[in-house]
Amino acid sequence: MDRFRSKPVAAVRFVAQRGLLKPLVWSLVRVSTRGLDRLDSVDAPFILVANHSSHLDAPLIFGWLPRRLSRYLAAGAAADYFFDVAWRKWLTTLFFNAFAIERNSEGKRTGSSRSLLERGVPLLIFPEGGRSKHGEMGRFKPGAAALSLATGTPCIPVALVGASTAMPRGVNWPKRGRLPVTVVFGAPITPTTGESTEEFSVRLAAEVRRLHETVQPMPSREHAEKGR
């Protein structure tokens, strides 16, 4: 059985995502979304390309992406962290339809990513390779851009704003007070004629950064109350 395209597995995952994970995230942070209308004409397969600064990132994307696009979405997860312990691998697979990515040896498992796209499975990839230490975007590794070029699959840029403040790297639970986070979906992007992998990767990073900058920082409730 192909677990990535299995309807019964997808049904169980839907219950886990929308019945357990999304309500939990909603109770911990205040979520707003932008740009969902840009996805109206999108069909699988596609590659979601997002900045990565918090363990909230994947739950936010899976929870607020339209069901028709998230049903078989598979998230790339670090093999050396999410697949090294049985219980963590099981949970990551259950909630995010995860596939392993080698962070320290690029290209080692790119065949699995390409195979998924060729079977019609959309992917979520965090090209920075790990969560940023201080919430600032790092350099994008070229893996997502290379996959897009090799398969003709469009990339959808996604900016996650406020997640690093709500749940920074090094903590195991979001901060108190339901801090605001915003998920901004961009329009699909495809490589231009003659564009290299590195050039396309840089352009993807620039678009994610641009989307990020369209969101004005929102004060937390605690800060707003102090300003009264």
Results as ranks from 00 to 15, higher is better:
Leu24Gly: 03
Thr190Ala: 14
Arg178Met: 13
Arg13Lys: 12
Pro219Ala: 15
Phe82Ser: 10
Gly143Lys: 04
Tyr72Gln: 04
Asn97Tyr: 08
Ile189Val: 14
Arg103Met: 08
Arg67Ile: 08
Tyr72Arg: 08
His134Gly: 11
Asn51Thr: 09
Glu213Phe: 03
Ile125Cys: 11
Pro45Lys: 10
Phe95Gln: 05
Asp84Trp: 01
Ala146Glu: 15
Ala163Leu: 09
Asn97Asp: 06
Gly194Val: 06
Gln216Tyr: 04
Val215Glu: 01
Val183Ala: 00
Thr190His: 07
Val42Trp: 01
Ala77Pro: 03
Asp80Ile: 10
Pro122Glu: 11
Met218Trp: 04
Asp80Ala: 10
Phe14Trp: 13
Ala44Ile: 04
Met1Glu: 10
Arg176Lys: 13
Pro191Thr: 02
Glu207Pro: 02
Gly107Ser: 02
Ala166Val: 02
Leu20Ser: 02
Leu160Trp: 10
Ile101Met: 14
Pro174Ser: 11
Ser113Trp: 03
Met218Val: 15
Pro168Gly: 04
Glu195Tyr: 09
Pro191Cys: 09
Met218Leu: 13
Arg13Pro: 02
Gly162Asn: 06
Ser6Trp: 06
Arg30Phe: 00
Ala75His: 06
Val184His: 00
Lys175Val: 08
Pro66Gly: 09
Pro154Val: 13
Pro59Met: 09
Pro23Lys: 04
His223Trp: 03
Arg176Phe: 12
Ala86Arg: 15
Lys226Ile: 05
Ser220Asn: 07
Ser54Val: 12
Ser54Pro: 09
Leu124Trp: 04
Ala100Ile: 05
Pro157Asn: 04
